[in-house]
Amino acid sequence: MRSRTRPIPKADVSAPLSVRLTVNGRPRTIAVEPRTTLLDALRDMLALSGTKKGCDRGECGACTVHIDGRRVLSCMTLAAMQEGRRITTIEGLEDGGRLHPVQAAFVEHDGFQCGFCTSGQIMSGVAMIEEAKAGWPSAATADVARSLTLADLSNAEIRERMSGNLCRCACYPNIVEAIAEAATGRR
């Protein structure tokens, strides 16, 4: 192994910080080191292991959760920066024992194989449908100046909007079908 020549700086303060946040509807207070990512805090401190760690570099989407309703990568943000935020993970999606429509559509359309990417895919898909409802364009939108509706959510649009979630099992066609049905009822 090559040597790491640069010294690791010693920080003067890296004492745990106390953070209050809401996770899946429940208020929580956690004590985290500044360097703890939101992903590690969810998995290791809050025992919410449904959120997966693939690359830990923002490159795969397996760690996708919602912060205040927006999809984000929990490996690329610090837990200590989430004071007062509302976090939703895959564990918080079901409603009184009933699957969220996107979860149900993934089961129906066989949108997974090994399942490692699946919670990230579903969290991404749920928020992506909201973005489309809000009229957000994508790189697959021919004319970004035009206003959009859910009816514009073609399969090409879904593929582009979901491109931040990789699937090593390549279940992409079924994932697109599942999301299309959940979003538009199109089968």
Binding site: L73, T77, P137, S138, V144
Partner: peptide, 16 residues
């Protein structure tokens, strides 16, 4: 400007 942003990174990263 909108296109340059939309062709960058991913939906999750652009939100952050």
């Amino acid at each position: 400007i909108a296109e340059a942003l939309l062709f960058a990174a991913s939906g999750q990263l652009r939100n952050m």
